[in-house]
Simulated assay, not measured.
Amino acid sequence: MKPAIMRLIQICAFTLGMASLTMAQTPPTPGEPKRFPQITLEQLPPDARPLGEEIIAISSVGLGGPYNVMLRSPVFADRMKRLLDYLRFNTSLPTRLNEFAILIQGKVWSSQVEWYAHYPLALKAGLPQQVADDLKSGIRPRDMKPDEAVVYDVSMEMIQNHQISDALFQKSKAILGEQQLVDLVAVSGTYVTVAMLLALGQEMPPAGKPLPFPPK
């Protein structure tokens, strides 16, 4: 069978399985306390309070979301925030592609908070809404630009095969360059960690906001 046909079959099979790849991250059972009660600045150890203040200054959810879980391990939280500072604000990837990569992991993990937080950021950065909405629907986004298609294909092959083909590597390097390709994989893996932390704490969007992935 021709490589192009094999590639098409792989993409179609993976796309068809996207909707059932994971269950939606579910909120706490009604009436049950949060796994990690919301931490406050005053509850942090004195040497971690400057970190808490930094987070409050930049975070739309304050010390909520992943920070509420991360701050149970203050040294880890500090290291993780430094990494996120680079991957969010100083990465070599254009913001449009960076946010697309985060949304892909948000979809794969059905991460309520990741999608809620990053969907508007992706659109603001210039990702076409149809691309984001197709991703959320579990289909290969239509009409992607060449660099968006590379982000999608690299992310999906890494998720499915835990590696990428030589052909995709060469294509990705030609379109993104070496540094952007490395930063793409770095942000993707980091937001898997974020999604897992959110799942651990059953962290959800703010009260009253609809869940991006309603539990089935």
Rank of each mutant, 00 (worst) to 15 (best):
Met1Glu: 13
Lys2Phe: 15
Arg7Thr: 13
Gln10Arg: 13
Thr15Pro: 05
Leu16Gln: 11
Gly17Cys: 01
Thr22Asp: 08
Pro28Ser: 12
Pro37Cys: 11
Thr40Val: 05
Thr40Glu: 09
Thr40Phe: 06
Pro45Lys: 01
Leu51Lys: 01
Ser59His: 00
Val61Arg: 02
Gly64Pro: 11
Gly65Cys: 02
Gly65Ala: 00
Pro66Gln: 04
Tyr67Asp: 03
Val69Trp: 03
Met70Gln: 09
Arg72Gly: 09
Tyr86Glu: 03
Tyr86Gln: 15
Thr91Pro: 02
Thr95Cys: 01
Phe100Lys: 05
Ile104Glu: 10
Gln105Arg: 03
Val108Leu: 03
Gln112Leu: 08
Glu114Val: 02
Trp115Cys: 10
Ala117Thr: 13
Leu121Tyr: 02
Leu121Trp: 02
Ala125Ser: 00
Gln129Gly: 10
Gln130Leu: 09
Val131Ala: 02
Lys136Tyr: 15
Pro141Asp: 02
Pro141Tyr: 03
Glu148His: 02
Glu148Met: 04
Val150Leu: 04
Val150Asp: 10
Met156Gly: 15
Ile164Val: 13
Phe169Thr: 15
Phe169Asp: 14
Gln170Trp: 12
Ser172Met: 14
Lys173Gln: 14
Ile175Asn: 04
Gly177Thr: 08
Glu178Gln: 15
Ala186Glu: 13
Ser188Thr: 11
Thr190Glu: 10
Tyr191Ala: 04
Tyr191Asp: 09
Thr193Ile: 00
Leu197Glu: 05
Leu200Arg: 06
Gly201Pro: 01
Met204Arg: 03
Pro205Glu: 11
Gly208Ala: 03
Phe213Val: 04
Pro214Val: 00
Pro214Lys: 09
Pro215Cys: 04
